[in-house]
Write a protein that binds this DNA or RNA. Structure first.
Lengths: 244, 244
DNA sequence: AAGTGGTCTAGACCACTAA
DNA sequence: TAGTGGTCTAGACCACTTC
């Protein structure tokens, strides 16, 4: 009952790191579900055989990464992707007047194909690996502003095409339907000219400057979950970054 | 000697916040200079009349914001803008092959003028406020890749035009010459078409898509220090963002 | 050996939430 | 009132750096 963590006598990482990793593994395997309240610090300390202060340090680290949410007087809860505060963690486009909202989405294609060499490299897939290729157009104020392609490793998204409707917030779908939590992402931005296809999809002249966002999203286990390329009109919007 | 912090009995913010603010004010007024070693946690605890744990929490918070650097066995040091690790805190452009280096710079103009309405809004200046307007071209591999305009409130940069040479890393200049530390910045990115002036400066056709970076940089006192607009060719480079 | 920051513990008390 | 996380303290011991 006690030695949940320190079973082997010699451990290189500090205790609170090991405690954190034990907690992350509970998030990965679903023993702790989104929205669920965690045991109290005291209970976790007893259960894991460490002091409350060490549990606190691990929980604070999870909270800093937005994996759990802590509320004084209430408890500690597993983060939910639908939660308002987190909706914009991975969506950095903002209207120039400051209003922030998620654009509506219209799926234009969803097919399973062999992964391209680029997709295999981005997602760490073997030769002949399969992927889902999802394409959609996203609208703000009824205007098409983003042409998006999402590439997913087919093995982690079984029967994705049997989902009735792909929701606007796909990360909520990944979580609820496939048990995959997007923990962090890396984006690369460039300015590119709209191709003829972009121009048709976005209703702008060919050659129009577009903000290209190339994203790889990673799960709790640090494995790539999604490769996404968004091509955005930025006449009335900007991509916001906080450098701290 | 003791009650450096809790002079008044009632304070709303937690102690470690007050300790942090006392420390930040020492950074602002120059009692703690860049590169300088801070007193040990124990000394600070005694001096400020709090426990070592509270001092540690304040110092950890400063370290998280890259305002100080902590090294086990050595001590805690005020961050220096020239330090390698910090050079890229505010420069997010990376070569597509992964190499990171700061581009060379050539100043094309440096004049003191009345601030435009836009500049007054960005920098929080009064009507008829004065600014420095610095323009430069930045090169990577000998190729011009960034056309940059930097607008500075003249009041905080006296005799800027008497600086012999404006260094490539202007934030080191702000620190060494004017005692101004850039603590954080907010950037807005868009894709725009190169104007005729851009085209001439960067040696590209007019209409070429450019990544526009609009940055406001803030000092330790949270007042704006700099407004900067960079227009970047991103054929061989990208702007990297880590979403965590 | 001495001095520094890093980890871990134990316990007191406060602030907030819910019943 | 009971239970939760948040703050603050005091002290022990470890890891690293320097002399």
């Amino acid at each position: 009952m006690e030695a949940e963590i320190s079973e082997t006598a010699f451990e290189l990482r500090p205790l609170y790191r090991q405690v954190r990793e034990a907690m992350v593994s509970r998030l990965i395997d679903g023993r702790w579900q989104p929205g669920q309240m965690l045991p109290s610090e005291q209970q976790l300390a007893v259960e894991m055989g460490v002091s409350q202060g060490t549990v606190r340090k691990a929980l604070d680290s999870l909270a800093a990464d937005n994996l759990v949410m802590r509320r004084q007087g209430r408890g500690t809860f597993v983060a939910e992707p639908e939660e308002g505060r987190l909706l914009f963690k991975f969506f950095k486009l903002t209207a120039d007047d400051g209003r922030r909202r998620l654009p509506d989405s219209t799926v234009t294609a969803l097919v399973k194909t062999k992964a391209s060499a680029a997709a295999r490299a981005k997602l760490g897939l073997p030769p002949r690996g399969l992927v889902w290729d999802l394409r959609r157009t996203r609208f703000l104020d009824g205007q098409p502003v983003i042409a998006e392609e999402i590439v997913l490793p087919a093995g982690r998204f079984p029967a994705l095409d049997r989902v009735e409707t792909v929701p606007n917030n796909v990360y909520a779908l990944y979580s609820a339907r496939f048990g995959l939590t997007v923990a962090h992402a890396v984006e690369r931005l460039k300015a590119v000219a709209a191709t003829a296809a972009d121009a048709e999809q976005l209703g702008c002249p060919a050659g129009t400057p577009l903000l290209l966002i190339d994203r790889i999203a990673y799960g709790l286990d640090e494995a790539p979950i999604e490769w996404r390329v968004s091509r955005c009109l930025t006449d009335a919007f900007h991509y916001g970054v906080d450098l701290k």
